[in-house]
Simulated scan of single mutants.
Amino acid sequence: MTAPLAHQRFRFVALPEDQGKRLDQVLAARVPDLSRRKARVLVDLGGVFVDGARVKVAGRAVRAGQTIIAHLGGALERATKEVGASARARDEAQLPPFRVVFQDDDIAVIDKPAGLVTAPTPESDRGNLADLLRRALGGELFVVHRLDLETSGLVVFARTAEANRILSERIREHAVERTYLAVLAGTVDWEERTIDEPIAGRRAVSHASVLERLAPGATLTRFRLETGRTHQIRIHARHVGHPVLGDRKYGKPSPIDPPRLSLHATRLGFVHPRSGEPVAFDSPLPEDLATWLDALRARGPSC
């Protein structure tokens, strides 16, 4: 697998000689290896901020003294190298489809495919699940929590400000059930384990249990999150010496690498923000990972 372009952030202040020039012209001159054409694409993606505000007009005149921040990364790499409505439509047509598992007036539970960003990022405000869902359902939509680009599975959005407040509070209180399936590198020698290891100075706790040891040297594991830090399972898996297979950031290439990151949000449970009743949703492993696992099983059990 080819590694995605790492996120890079370039910050600079417009000089007197930049006064009155087009934004894409200034970007191409000040950001290393960024052509004028790529600068226009980056602006169109929403990866450029001027004095703290996202700017999407490449021809906007720059004023001396303005602070310009450009976010380069995977979004630019994945985008059609054109701008405008037709280019955005082509980009969206290439996105993997998502499935609405449940919706009512308060929430929408979605089965997110790998390869689809959950919400806008500094790199881009287009081609993300929140934007697509907002247009599909209409009305307000609030991002309660996120899944990584390469992670598939269940995610909930709020459709009212009150539902967002309640669900966000339950996330902070760790009162939401979030269970993942992950295939770890190597043969794990424990059956259950609680991993209590801070991430970025904040408490992070994961509860892991082995479901199946696969050949050669892979272990299907269930993770239940007690906290929800960024990349928590991936970091905790690396911490115990068994990174998630297919993880290009925290793991290493393997001859049995899956078609993508082998991490799937399989169960999501919480108290409904309006009714007060507990609800829970399940999602089996998607076909790409299930087929890969079957091929591993065909080799026989791991020792």
Score class of each variant (00 low, 15 high):
139 G>N: 11
71 H>T: 04
89 A>N: 08
109 V>C: 12
262 S>Q: 00
83 V>L: 03
249 K>D: 13
57 V>Q: 13
88 R>N: 02
134 R>D: 02
133 L>N: 00
1 M>R: 10
198 P>L: 09
70 A>K: 02
160 T>H: 14
183 V>I: 12
249 K>T: 15
99 R>F: 13
204 A>K: 04
79 A>E: 01
50 V>W: 05
75 A>G: 01
54 R>E: 12
201 G>H: 12
98 F>N: 01
278 P>Q: 08
149 L>C: 03
180 Y>I: 09
184 L>F: 14
84 G>E: 09
108 A>H: 03
268 L>D: 02
118 T>W: 00
174 H>C: 08
119 A>C: 05
303 C>K: 15
285 L>A: 09
144 V>D: 06
278 P>M: 08
1 M>F: 13
237 A>L: 00
250 Y>T: 12
86 S>F: 07
101 V>C: 08
270 F>A: 05
97 P>L: 07
264 H>E: 11
21 K>I: 07
247 D>V: 06
172 R>S: 13
114 A>P: 09
275 S>V: 10
225 L>G: 01
250 Y>I: 14
252 K>I: 09
210 V>G: 04
175 A>E: 13
165 R>P: 04
294 D>A: 15
56 K>Q: 14
78 R>F: 01
63 R>H: 12
35 S>P: 01
12 F>N: 05
272 H>P: 02
73 G>Q: 03
107 I>L: 08
21 K>N: 06
114 A>G: 07
191 E>Q: 15
138 G>P: 02
160 T>D: 14
281 F>Y: 14
131 D>Y: 00
81 K>H: 14
25 Q>F: 02
99 R>Y: 15
148 D>I: 09
84 G>H: 06
292 W>I: 07
222 R>G: 04
240 V>R: 03
299 R>E: 15
104 D>P: 06
200 A>I: 13
180 Y>F: 08
170 R>N: 15
81 K>D: 13
119 A>S: 03
301 P>G: 10
97 P>A: 11
58 A>N: 12
144 V>E: 00
249 K>W: 06
151 T>H: 01
232 Q>D: 05
182 A>D: 03
198 P>D: 12
19 Q>D: 11
58 A>T: 14
213 R>A: 11
208 A>H: 02
301 P>M: 10
105 D>A: 15
207 H>Y: 07
245 L>K: 03
114 A>F: 02
32 P>Y: 09
